[in-house]
Write a protein that binds this DNA or RNA. Structure first.
Lengths: 338, 338
DNA sequence: CAGCCTGTTGGTAACGTTACCAACCTCCAC
DNA sequence: GTGGAGGTTGGTAACGTTACCAACAGGCTG
């Protein structure tokens, strides 16, 4: 009375019996109907409709070598709009290839990443797409992955030679910094991620290169590289701007830091603190940047395209298994001046 | 030379042979090791490590009645940050219950939704969470779903009596509109979605209720209810603000319309058009709303919590299959004044 | 010491799919 | 008309898991 609540799913045998054919013919019909007489197909499909049968997609991958039609994705933070768009890009290309995605959020936790990846492989995914967390990456070596193809996105993993899609972090940061220098700024603050984060390192490098090239010294008092969230970024900006010699411009290496810095700048304007308030360059776009109270130059990129490229690399690897060397695609960024 | 490129996955038999036990014992060990002698478990695990075996999660759900550990989610637009957070909320709760999510993007296309749902069921998902598209919903009736539990989020589907999580759209819009009326506005524009979109209808209703209650007439010349994207919203705002009697405040029923309206307002300010420029109420938060050139009241909500609640409803249904009536959870919204 | 319970191990079957093989049909060319 | 080709149908096996049953050991109680 209590257990068989949920109206059991019909079996393929029941479908076959109702249609008056063998389970083989029923199964073949579900598989596309090659070499099955049209009238029998019709009877099978009628039985399928009547009983509400769904072809079991999991059973297909039971046989070794058969694709499951699943792509596993692990990203670091799905709440970040960029990663949502990234996942969408992957999903689109996967759908074009008749695949579905299994999605997991790592939250920058290596243990969770390891767990997700092994679960994905246990579900017989045809491929993996990861935004890797920074940490030990032994669990991502090909033999540990059962040789399931892997594509990395946004970040590279040291010692792991696999297909990768990246942004032009260095070039974008370089050009953004140059635009500040061209505008006459010589005292430029830097807000960014920990050095251990791949993009944090690269974006700092672009900043550094532009400064060095123009012979402008980098003052470590206005370089803050340890903010992961908006509030920490606000505090770092506040410290910088309270100095006796505050920066006249701030380079922010990502979205979270840009929002935090602008919150602090907005607060200072509202509180009537004396200016001039710093100009900004933000790596990562955010909406309504043109309405900010200080000029904001935006280094923008297309996260959805990044996802599409990652998936495209993966399917290229799946379709053509010639063991050519790992490929890296570096997507351009665009700079939008205020 | 060309085919067997990808180093075949080992079979359970190979693991069993290497460990010197029967496949049964190997399988039991992978399943948790109940009633298996510790030393045999150790030998099996050693063989698993050596061969790189992964327990096949798909094979489990082959037997009818066995859970697959998968939850299917279909949402309308993953690029919308709210839905990314929503998916994250679902993923978190699913992970807490040892489940993974399969994710699909419908893009408001009913055919795609139908296709996704039937694929999910074919993959033996234990449950479904949908942000339904507005359209024919015959494919969502329980018997068409093989009686897989379904939870709807954000929107209800007419004639479908299932567990649902909603926002307090009506109450939030009502209170937001009241705040404009309290501030003395009597000429209030409305920007929103098509009436056929569930939330569009509800949010208009809250707006209407507040206006009617205070006896303020609604002028259809400043009501625009057909914008789905930012650009359309900008154009609609422009038309409104170019009238001889422009609104002194605008109520925007969602994120996309708020951004569009503010772009247009920003443009007018930059171009030096005469004010006063309209105040705004925005259903849906967006970052840096406090830095806008006009006062913006925000009706905010927690999309991640919405996802968590949807998943919680689903797991309640899965754990306790007493066929109690469908439940609706309506989450509160918060109003942040400028 | 007989009987029984428990823990351990293996065997078998079933789930749905696909690969392979066997049997049968029709149809056409010779 | 005979033979072969090709289409159609069913059977069998295999994949890995879990439910069930059987067999056996060891230890316990009466």
């Amino acid at each position: 009375m209590s257990k068989p609540q949920g109206a059991r799913q019909p079996t393929i045998k029941e479908v076959a019996n109702l249609a008056g054919v063998s389970p083989m013919t029923a199964s073949r019909t579900l598989a596309g109907g090659r070499n099955v007489r049209p009238d029998l197909q019709e009877r099978v499909m009628a039985a399928v409709r009547e009983l509400g049968y769904f072809r079991n997609e999991n059973a297909r991958s039971l046989r070794p070598g058969q694709p499951s039609g699943l792509i596993g994705i692990a990203i670091t933070n799905l709440a970040n709009p960029y990663y949502g768009s990234f996942a969408l890009g992957v999903e689109e290309v996967a759908a074009e290839h008749g695949r579905r995605i299994i999605l997991g959020n790592t939250g920058e936790d290596v243990a969770r990443e390891r767990q997700l990846v092994s679960d994905f492989i246990g579900r017989q995914v045809d491929g993996l797409i990861l935004v890797p967390t920074s940490g030990d990456a032994a669990h991502l070596r090909p033999e540990r992955l059962g040789h399931v193809p892997l594509v990395l996105a946004s970040r590279r993993v040291p010692g792991l030679d696999v297909d990768t899609v990246l942004l032009d972090d260095v070039g974008g940061s370089y050009r953004g910094t140059i635009s500040l220098l061209d505008a006459g700024h010589t005292r430029i603050g830097f807000l960014g991620n920990r050095t251990s984060v791949f993009t944090g390192e690269r974006r700092y490098r672009g900043f550094e290169r532009a400064m060095t090239e123009r012979g402008v010294p980098i003052d470590t008092a206005i370089v803050a590289r340890d903010q992961q969230d908006v509030d920490a970024a606000s505090r770092a900006a506040r410290v910088m701007l309270d100095l006796d010699e505050p920066p006249t411009a701030i380079f922010s290496a990502n979205n979270r830091n840009s929002i935090g810095a602008l919150r602090e700048i907005g607060r200072r304007i509202r509180d009537g603190l004396p200016g001039p308030h710093p100009s900004m360059v933000s790596f990562d776009d955010f909406e309504l940047s043109e309405l900010m109270p200080v000029p904001v130059t935006v280094i923008d990129h297309d996260a959805r395209l990044l996802g599409r490229e990652a998936a495209t690399l993966l399917f290229a690897r799946l379709d053509d298994d010639t063991a050519e060397a790992a490929r890296t695609v570096e997507l351009p960024v665009t700079i939008e001046y205020p």
